[in-house]
């Protein structure tokens, strides 16, 4: 699903964000990318969804070299993914329902199906009672759940989550991880970036990539 070959990423030549990363994440795997703040976890994910380009090296997603992907094809790459951003990235002038349904609108899913799917998804993350609210009216945890609902709504082949439980209490965090696990069991490849070791412990069949100062320090 994801292959990296000697990938380097420098925002600033003096302090590289990622150094010589080579790995292979197979289809259907559940992978944690772990490490302290500043280890390069977010950059790692950004390279996969082509928000950033590697300074050196090659990245293949679904066997396509994404550095060579023409700009017009980037939306299609992202439509095959669900992404949970650390800062949620919700559209503040749209309701919770519209935020989640937007992804299906892009895909041209009929309205009747969209309504049903979105309502079910919002119920799964326990935010359906606020579907007519706007993101600024919600707490951080609630917004995070909306972001997760949006990421899962189109049954993506690949789910990328950047600190997806950062604002959630332990109970809800477990619930969200169960959702990810469920998606994984349906065939979605899941990559979760987290600095929380407790979260890693709650998934049994997983791999962990430990990053520190941009390098892979442990891989199990």
């Amino acid at each position: 699903m994801i292959q990296m070959f000697n990938v380097f990423k420098n925002y600033d030549p003096m302090s590289p964000a990622l150094i010589d990363i080579s790995l292979h994440i197979r289809k259907g795997e559940f992978v944690f990318v772990s490490g302290p703040s500043g280890a390069g976890k977010t950059t790692f994910l950004k390279l996969i969804y082509r928000e950033e380009l590697p300074t050196r090296g090659h990245i293949l997603v679904n066997r396509r070299n994404i550095a060579k992907l023409p700009p017009s094809k980037i939306p299609y790459l992202r439509r095959s993914m669900g992404i949970v951003f650390q800062d949620f990235k919700l559209l503040n002038n749209k309701t919770i329902f519209d935020n989640v349904s937007f992804v299906l609108k892009i895909l041209g899913v009929p309205i009747a199906i969209t309504k049903k799917k979105v309502f079910n998804m919002l119920r799964m993350v326990d935010i359906h009672h606020k579907m007519k609210s706007f993101p600024p009216q919600l707490s951080g945890g609630e917004q995070q759940r909306v972001a997760i609902a949006r990421a899962l709504i189109n049954d993506p082949a690949l789910l990328l989550a950047d600190e997806p439980t950062g604002n959630l209490d332990p109970e809800l965090s477990m619930e969200i991880m169960r959702l990810f696990e469920e998606a994984n069991q349906k065939g979605t490849t899941v990559v979760v970036a987290t600095h929380n070791p407790a979260l890693i412990g709650c998934i049994s069949n997983k791999r962990v990539i430990m990053l520190d100062k941009g390098r892979i320090v442990k891989y199990y």
Binding site: R78, L90, F102
Partner: peptide, 16 residues
């Protein structure tokens, strides 16, 4: 701009 960036990140095409 933020809204446009988010749309791009969730896979909206330029035309959309």
């Amino acid at each position: 701009k933020d809204e446009i960036d988010i749309m791009k990140l969730v896979g909206a095409s330029s035309w959309f």
